[in-house]
Design a protein around this nucleic acid. Sequence first.
DNA 1: TCTGGGGTCCTAGGACCC
DNA 2: TCTGGGGTCCTAGGACCC
Length: 407
Amino acid sequence: MEKKQKQILHIDVNNAFLSWTAMDRLAQGEKVDIREIEAVIGGDESKRSGIVLAKSMKAKKRGVYTGETLYQARLKCPNLQVFKGDYKSYKKHSNDLYNLLLQYTDKIERFSIDECFLDMTEYLGNDTLLNKAYEISKKVKNELGFTVNIGVAHNKLLAKMASDFTKPDRVHTLFEEEIPTKMWTLPVSELFMIGKKTLPALYKMHIKTIGDLAKQDKQEMIKKFGKHGLMMWEYSKGIDKSEVHYLEEKPKGIGNSVTLPMDLVEKEKIEKVLLTLTEQVTYRLRKYNMYANVVNVQLRTKDFKDFSHQKKLMNATSNTKDVYNVAKELLDEMYKKGTFIRLVGLRVDNLIDKDEVQLSLFNNDEEKKQEKLDEVVDKLKEKYGYNSVTRAGKLHSEEIIKFKDSD
DNA sequence: TCTGGGGTCCTAGGACCC
DNA sequence: TCTGGGGTCCTAGGACCC
């Protein structure tokens, strides 16, 4: 029996961070709509994170692109206005969008803070997919005050490609019969999952457009690029069998990292940063009610070389002290005297639900004591705010890193 | 010149076992 | 002394996404 064709929408907020900040400012009585001027949302240059996070159409016309340094952006666009981002507000706008979309289907995958996939296969009734897309587009604009692009297709890949066509405030279809005219004509760099490392290899093979890629021999692509080769080849032909993952998924790993205001050399100072990061990460881990099996420490040197070491634990844990002790061991392995460290990161991986954990025979009094301690500290943090509770010997690093209340 | 932070997935090599 | 594979687990590093 043939399976019913899927009906997929991809919703993408236009210049999300910039649009949302524009709305917030107008709501606060500011007169200028920053969507209408040469503006970007940017990081903080004094914290050495001065990159473009989102740009207005006018800034884009000047050649400003996401990810470049504010310095570079200003060279192209001398009157550029830079505004700070507000993650809390973005989360709220993102939730508003999600709640509006729930009126159409509950099969929604939140692909990122500003993108959703909708599986409309069961919810269309007598209407067409395209009509629904226009209806959603209008409703979002009228009720939420920002615009979206919507891609309309029969799988996720094609819907995502379609939503990336002309912007803003547009609805585009990309059905199978439209692939040659709408997709194969595009530069191969536009294809989802082709990044700046793969591009040179493709150019060498004289592959310039997505159509060129689609003409390649499948086996050759697999031989040259492995799994990634197969995926690229399938995507170029519009093949994608993946499902819309609409159920809430637990994270597979949790990490925090920080670019330091100034490079650090002394191990003791790096350890203090690690402790602060460990507290942040394990706090989030415990909020998910999960345990970690792997601890990973990342360092970035001042010349942008990245290193990481990881270790699998004997017993899964969410305990601050346990994770920190391993983190210190890993730092010990990696630390080279006299190296200038720009970034420190800590993440936990191979997570499992707390109730799946086999209670270890070694779950002794000391461990129970530590868990209790975490619990008490977490409760205080819930009540009085994350930064209300602090460990001795860590004050300095907390001046360096302020916890970002993201969850 | 200056280059974020949070993720997921894949690969390759080494250890170890059968 | 010189020689196999296959499978799993672990680790370091890297590509890609938003």
